[in-house]
Design a protein around this nucleic acid. Structure first.
Lengths: 137, 137
DNA sequence: ATAAATGCAAAGACTTTGCAGCGGC
DNA sequence: GCCGCTGCAAAGTCTTTGCATTTAT
């Protein structure tokens, strides 16, 4: 039983229950770790767990509040979640395959702060998603 | 009757009907021209028009397809629409008042293209929203 | 006249919530 | 044993769709 997982939950003030452990593990182990609630739900079922969709949503919302996961709305329709490892990155989504890659960039960060300041805002947060075509390798 | 409005509709291959005219006019005249379908619906009612919410959604979707308006999902919950005047800007949203300002920036544009290329993508589009606090004046 | 557009109500997708029972500490 | 957690089903949002009627050309 993953020690780190247990610790994360306790630190978040959440009881260490089976559904919460499984969801954390699944998010951690998934190749593309950006998953919708439905993705997670089906993944759990396939893994033999019997966890309700409502619980998945509830747990994810709690995790988000606790800062364990981040919620994204790439398309607007369905939300996707990913483990928050504190590195606060942006995303680039392939319009063909749907694959998601991540990046951070100092130049962008710096310039966004300048822009906000110029416009009279104190920047607290931002959301940047690129859409493109992945060049065939 | 606004000539430009009529022309836009015709160019888009859409019949010039009252609901479509009114919606275009409302989007054009609104102070903060970022409006949800519900906003528009209520605005029309207040103006004395009798137009169904379903029609508002249908018309907005058609306008989006025709390139007359753009749909945004700032919060993820509700979509907001704005007239597309071709200048393709980013947004900064005040977390207190909800006010939305717009900007474009060459440095950002250029850097995003570089980033996409570096990652092996051909950039087709991007979505950038800043969240901040507007400094009191 | 004809094909398209509208309004209403019903259905859909996604997400949240109420409540009785189960489970961790 | 207590309080929180889960599952299920029902309710909630936001948005789309089916169908009979109205409307623009």
């Amino acid at each position: 039983m993953p020690e780190a997982t247990t610790r994360s939950l306790k630190q978040a003030g959440l009881k260490v229950t089976l559904p919460r452990m499984r969801i954390l593990e699944l998010l951690d182990s998934a190749e593309d770790h950006h998953m919708s609630a439905e993705d997670i739900y089906r993944g759990l079922l396939q893994a033999g767990d019997d966890i309700g969709l409502a619980t998945v949503y509830r747990v994810l919302t709690q995790f988000e509040t606790a800062g364990l996961v981040t919620r994204h709305h790439f398309d607007g329709g369905t939300a996707v979640f990913e483990l928050d490892v504190g590195d606060d990155h942006s995303h680039i989504v392939c319009m063909k395959s749907g694959a998601v890659a991540e990046f951070t960039d100092e130049i962008i960060e710096q310039r966004l702060n300048e822009i906000a300041t110029e416009l009279g805002y104190q920047l607290t947060n931002y959301n940047l998603v690129l859409y493109g075509i992945k060049q065939s390798s």
